[in-house]
Design a binder for these strands. Structure first.
Lengths: 192, 192
DNA sequence: GCCGGTATCTAGGCATTGACAAGTTCACGA
DNA sequence: TCGTGAACTTGTCAATGCCTAGATACCGGC
């Protein structure tokens, strides 16, 4: 509702993006309305379209930004476990990005910017397992680690493990979870 | 478009549910339109509302059905690993249910039927770790296992691991993944 | 300093949708 | 037979996405 003296908003793209993240965080991507975002920014209802083309364009831009944020969050972390912790932290800190990134139906998955950003994040994920010693199938190991972190993050954001967390932060809880796995406490059953 | 001779459809609820699952599977929950579902069933545009109240009601019914299907899929499986495999299989077999179940913004989370069905599924999940020997924190172990299976399932449905699968089925791949973890092949790094 | 091109934003309109209200048809039991 | 309620229809309203045409302002070349 910020009144504006100039004809040009000046920073409409960022303004709309920020408002979109708020809405998605609070009510999910389904509640997104381009017209509502325009109202919040104090511009006419068709103004956002110039920056994002349409709804899918806006969400694609958010997803691309998310992949870049994820890549940055993972960069420079040597240990695999700590990468997992940072993955969880990213999801907790950027829930809107995270949600949109993993709902391909909402996106233009062939968008060049999105593809490039996703590849940068993907490279960081692969780097986490590349230097593991004595792992026969690095790709499978990577998917195992990714599944664990991604599942934890998803269950966290869908409020499926809030009770279990207690007063502990998600990151610490996840760190101790990996400890449980890596010290073999879950391996006591039959092996085939 | 099936022409109908009687005034009453006869099985509108099931008809709408089935059509909704098709749409969600193909294009996600966002593409759901009550009016479109009505057209497919050959009824007037407001007929579905009588059975599901509104959009959230329809999605809540789908989620509840999903939790019951999941509980049934897990029931009677003794081993934890096999429960994980069945969890993955459930997601692969019922992608629409799975998606909707884990998007709380779309649902009426306080709906009694939904809460009850979710509790039944939750009980089956807990049962998987209840009889594990020598696990100090069964709850944490359960969340670790759930995270792994849920993450794998989610990444599978979002087409993030299709390349890695090759011609292997998701279930077999997941089974071998758990093998990787449970035989300690990912535990070679530092332990603190 | 000004002038034209272009990015940015406005205004209007159309088809579609979700939700609501009121009326119609039908099944079923007293 | 009658009436009661469930199942479905019809009509309507506000809101949305998207398109098109037009208005405004910024910016580089001259």
């Amino acid at each position: 509702m910020t009144s504006r003296k100039t004809y040009h908003h000046g920073d409409l793209r960022q303004s709309v993006l920020a408002a979109a993240l708020d809405v998605i965080t609070a009510e999910g991507p389904g509640a997104l309305s381009l017209r509502d975002l325009a109202r919040r920014a104090g511009v006419s209802h068709a103004a956002p379209a110039h920056h994002f083309k349409d709804r899918a364009g806006l969400l694609t831009a958010i997803a691309a930004e998310g992949y870049d944020l994820l890549a940055a969050a993972l960069a420079g972390t040597p240990e695999l476990r700590e990468r997992g912790v940072r993955y969880v932290r990213f999801a907790a800190d950027h829930p809107a990005h995270f949600q949109v990134m993993f709902q391909p139906e909402l996106l233009r998955t062939d968008d060049p910017d999105l593809v490039a950003a996703k590849e940068r994040a993907s490279a960081e994920l692969r780097a986490g397992v590349a230097d593991l010693p004595d792992v026969p199938d690095a790709r499978a190991a990577g998917i195992a680690a990714w599944s664990l972190a991604h599942g934890f993050a998803t269950l966290l954001l869908t409020r499926n493990i809030t009770a279990a967390l207690g007063d502990q932060g998600p990151e610490e809880y996840f760190r101790s979870l990996t400890g449980l796995l890596f010290t073999g406490q879950l391996t006591t059953e039959s092996r085939d």
